[in-house]
Design a protein around this nucleic acid. Structure first.
Length: 934
DNA sequence: CAGCTCACG
DNA sequence: GACGTACGTGAGCTGG
């Protein structure tokens, strides 16, 4: 996430934490080996309390704990005795220093220290950079040496007194405001740090002098004007020391080497990593508290002599043995399963891959379960393989557990909160298991980890991930199953033959997880994965299982009506064309219109160079008075509705539930949007009157209502915020119609005299901007000459110059990084930006659009993730998402309450990570059908 | 299986 | 001056 406006950086003075912890706690030692750990324990408690306290409003988006690296710094070159009278740290504290760094990393907080620099310098440099970037900074420390940084978005927080330190508090302490603090310190000196200053002058006198003379240099220059003789002489005698003191106390924003704010993004702690560390330290109380917070069982802490402490240097990634499918085990009875379950419990994690006998998890049977709890480990539990016999009469293969027996044995592990279940697209597995009453949790998903790291750069299929990250290419399943009409299904394989490919998948997943885990924080997308991807899995699984009720009789009736209409249109078309042909064939239609009937205006389309018969072409022809193209348009409209909707939708009704269950792809669209498949319920018609009627077939069951809530103009609002366009922001705040406002600004028409046509033009331009506008595109959309469209765009940029700046900056960011980011940190890669010509132009438009479309997607994801808790106690259920709309089903009596609660969640979904400068507005409605609710 | 067309935000 | 273009999707149909 690039750091900027709306972000909030917390900088924690780690050294202060350590010393305070050391002195506050008795000298604790680790039971097993006597390692002193009192300061580490206190440090961990403080860090945990800090993390807990900083949740909620105004939470940091970025954070780091900053440490002093070594005793000697560049200040010793300025003044040899700097901090010379500071005693060495106690012997039992020194070995704890590296452990506090380990602790910081275990909490998944960035840990900073730089050779030759004091923590204060690093904090100063980062605070300056964050301030320049337009963000907020909170320094968690009470060190007076940091007070010079306060102001202009930077404040301090005294962690002991839990008191904010702003400009006024600094004035209280020093008698001057922050910008003069170093002047006062230079005069007063500091006995603790051995800063000389001027003898006999303390803070009070120094402040008085500075306030009188304005600043230090003026004071030294005009020292002879001081009335008190002794004081005058002191200043004159010690001028050099005073100047050196000023250098010593001044934090230099520029001096610290390259530090990026981006990498300091806040992330949830990795539960296992943190609990492992706390267990290793044997901090039982805190470990239990942490486990409770994460709703995990109490961690096992072994007090017996433990493994030697980890080496200080990070080990290079281990060279893994190649994947060896020959080593996998087939499990056919519960006794054989037991040691695997024990190993999984020990490991706290397992890669899991269910083999299902069809794509639809809600109707599939279980062919087998593959598990891998580590490198080189893989087992397959066949449960649904077929033996002799054919087709419907196939027998179950002998020597395998029943699905029920296998799942009963696995259930405690699958639901164990201390065991992470890792999958590739694990929503599928979760959906299947939910049918058996198994609540799979907690889960991890390598597909989503890849999506968080590299959306837009590559696909996230298991084979692609394995080849790219593990260098492992598995044998194509076709080699085992065959292909074509005689291909076997997986269930047709003999169980022991199935073990290899099934367990291999599980081990690939395991290895990918190991591979990706450290890379998420390195890429700065841990927060994206942890807050926008992973928590969405159970939410979507529940929505998909819920399904939506449709009225098949109504669809069937509509299909009949459409068939009649189509027959009538076909007669007209054939009469007008003078022959029968396939109206659905663009090729035949083009031939008839342009070659046989001699109409002009045909365009070559796409790669094939075929004559285009798209709707825009046919509309043009119809406008010229040709009857045939209009009838073809009529035919296409009805034909589309019948084939894609009224006919097809009926086939998706699940026989068990009587409802339609779509599947959402979390990693489908590069921008963060969801995609809906089988069936796609995100493109149900609404724009035409006839299409709209299809929504009448999406109904609420008796006694219930469908409720639709949608964000109004969310993308334009986000554009106004992210591009910082005052005119747009103001219009949104005042609730003015945004297209009317734009039209008024552009064309000089007063708002109350606005006509449809002018407003529509402005509307097209507003949308065009979101898409990375071009004169050509706007001209085509508005059917106006290109020059005129370009003139509109020029006027737009003149009226709203911030848009141009946003576009330029975003494209520059894409060129620099190869990706752009949403305000929530989602990254969308735009590799085409490195190309030339049209391909680059395309990538530029993509780069301009992605942060806006992506932010809207992030916001509705956040709303969806919060929705289950918000609807607690209601029978209302969330059923569908259509990019900026959520559809619910609720008992009639709950409708008002549901709308109130869901609207609140949706309108506040950006908070607290992003405080938008425009309001989000959600509109809602309810009815017996989706058509009525909308 | 690619290309065209068209449904949605 | 010519490229070729609005951003993001999924599905049904044709025809090689």
């Amino acid at each position: 996430m690039s750091f900027g406006k709306g972000h909030h950086l917390h900088l924690i003075d780690g050294s202060a934490f350590i010393f305070r912890a050391y002195h506050a706690l008795p000298p604790l030692t680790r039971k097993t080996d006597g390692l002193p750990v009192g300061a580490v324990a206190g440090f961990c408690n403080m860090l945990w309390k800090y993390i807990e306290d900083s949740r909620g409003n105004d939470a940091p988006t970025h954070a780091a704990v900053v440490f002093d690296h070594s005793a000697k710094t560049f200040r010793n070159d300025l003044y040899a005795d700097y901090k010379a009278n500071r005693p060495d740290p106690p012997d039992d504290l020194r070995p704890q220093f590296p452990l506090t760094r380990d602790a910081t990393r275990a909490f998944n907080v960035a840990c900073l220290e730089i050779k030759d620099f004091e923590a204060d310098d690093i904090i100063g440099a980062l605070a300056c950079r964050a301030r320049e970037a337009g963000g907020k900074v909170t320094i968690i420390s009470s060190d007076k040496d940091l007070m010079q940084l306060v102001g202009d978005g930077v404040e301090m927080l005294d962690p002991i007194k839990n008191k904010r330190i702003g400009r006024d508090e600094v004035f209280e302490k020093f008698g001057v405001y922050p910008e003069k603090v170093t002047d006062v310190q230079a005069l007063a000196g500091d006995s603790v740090d051995n800063v000389p200053g001027a003898p006999g002058i303390g803070i009070k006198t120094a402040a008085q002098l500075i306030n009188e003379f304005g600043d230090l240099e003026s004071l030294l220059a005009r020292a002879d004007e001081i009335k008190q003789p002794k004081r005058r002489q002191t200043l004159i005698d010690h001028a050099d020391n005073i100047r050196v003191s000023k250098q010593l106390v001044t934090l230099d924003c520029e001096s610290a080497p390259d530090l990026t704010l981006e990498s300091l993004e806040v992330a949830e702690p990795d539960h296992k990593q943190l609990l492992d560390f706390l267990s290793e330290m044997q901090f039982r109380t805190l470990a239990n508290r942490v486990a409770e917070r994460f709703r995990l069982g109490p961690p096992a802490i072994i007090d017996a002599p433990a493994a030697p402490p980890a080496a200080a240097e990070a080990a290079p990634p281990p060279v893994l043995p190649p994947i060896d499918p020959a080593s996998y085990v087939t499990i056919t009875d519960l006794d054989a399963l037991a040691p695997w379950l024990a190993a999984i419990g020990q490991e706290g994690a397992v890669a899991l891959d269910l083999q299902l006998d069809r794509l639809d998890e809600l109707q599939a049977g279980l062919t087998g379960v593959a598990i891998s709890p580590g490198v080189g480990l893989g087992a397959y539990i066949p449960t649904g393989h077929l033996g002799g016999g054919d087709g419907l009469f196939a027998d179950r293969a002998a020597d395998q557990l029943s699905p029920e027996a296998a799942l009963d044995a696995l259930r405690p592990m699958l639901e164990d909160p201390a065991i992470v279940k890792i999958g590739h697209d694990i929503k599928r597995d979760a959906k299947y298991l939910a049918r058996h009453g198994i609540a799979l949790a907690p889960v991890a998903d390598v597909m989503l980890m890849s999506y968080a790291m590299s959306a837009g750069a590559q696909g996230h299929g298991l084979d692609e991930l394995s080849e790219g990250n593990l260098g492992h290419r598995r044998a194509p399943l076709k080699e085992v199953l065959g292909s074509g009409r005689n291909a076997l299904t997986f269930a047709r394989l003999a169980p022991d033959v199935a073990t290899r490919p099934a367990a291999e998948e599980a081990e690939m997943i395991w290895r990918l997880w190991q591979n990706f885990r450290p890379r998420l924080p390195a890429a700065g997308v841990t927060a994206v994965y942890e807050t926008l991807e992973r928590p969405l899995i159970p939410v979507l699984a529940a929505m998909e299982r819920e399904g939506v009720s449709i009225d098949p009789a109504r669809l069937n009736r509509m299909s009949g009506d459409f068939a009649q209409k189509l027959a009538g249109i076909e007669d007209d078309v054939f009469r007008l064309a003078g022959q029968r042909f396939n109206i659905g064939s663009p090729k035949q239609l083009g031939e008839i219109l342009f070659s046989q009937m001699g109409m002009t205006g045909g365009r070559k389309s796409g790669k094939t160079g075929a004559l285009s018969t798209g709707a825009d072409v046919l509309e043009d022809l119809a406008g010229e008075g040709h009857e045939l193209p209009q009838r073809v348009l009529d035919w296409r409209l009805i034909s589309k509705l019948k084939a894609t909707y009224t006919d097809a939708l009926q086939t998706y009704v699940n026989p068990d539930s009587g409802r339609v269950h779509t599947s959402y792809q979390i990693a489908g669209a590069t921008t963060g949007r969801l995609a809906s498949t089988e069936p796609n319920l995100q493109n149900i018609p609404i724009r035409t009157e006839e299409g709209r009627r299809i929504r009448e077939a999406f109904v609420a069951p008796p006694g219930k209502r469908l409720i639709s809530l949608d964000y109004s103009q969310i993308e334009l609002r986000l554009l106004a915020h992210v591009a910082d366009i005052p005119a747009l922001k103001q219009a949104f705040r005042e609730g003015i119609d945004i297209h009317t406002m734009t039209a008024s600004q552009m064309f000089g028409v007063p708002i109350d005299k606005m006509d449809r046509e002018t407003r529509n033009r402005a509307k097209a331009i507003n949308f065009g901007v979101i898409y990375g506008i071009s004169g050509f595109g706007l001209a085509r959309n508005l059917k106006i000459p290109r020059a005129e469209a370009q003139a509109f765009i020029d006027t737009y940029f003149e009226r709203f110059p911030e848009i141009r700046a946003y576009m330029d900056n975003t494209v520059a960011e894409a060129k620099r990084n190869g990706y752009v980011s949403t305000m929530f940190g989602r990254r969308i890669h735009t590799p085409g930006i490195a190309l030339n010509g049209p391909a680059q132009a395309g990538a530029r438009r993509q780069a301009i659009n992605a942060p806006i479309q992506g932010a809207a997607a992030d916001i509705i994801r956040r709303a969806m993730i919060r929705m289950p808790d918000a609807l607690e106690g209601l029978q209302a259920r969330m059923l569908l998402q259509v990019h900026d709309e959520l559809v619910f089903e609720a008992p009639e009596a709950e409708v008002d309450e549901l709308i109130a609660r869901a609207r609140k969640v949706m309108e506040g979904a950006a908070e607290p990570v992003v405080r938008l400068s425009v309001p989000l507005v959600v509109e809602g409605g309810a009815g017996g059908s989706w058509a009525e609710a909308h």
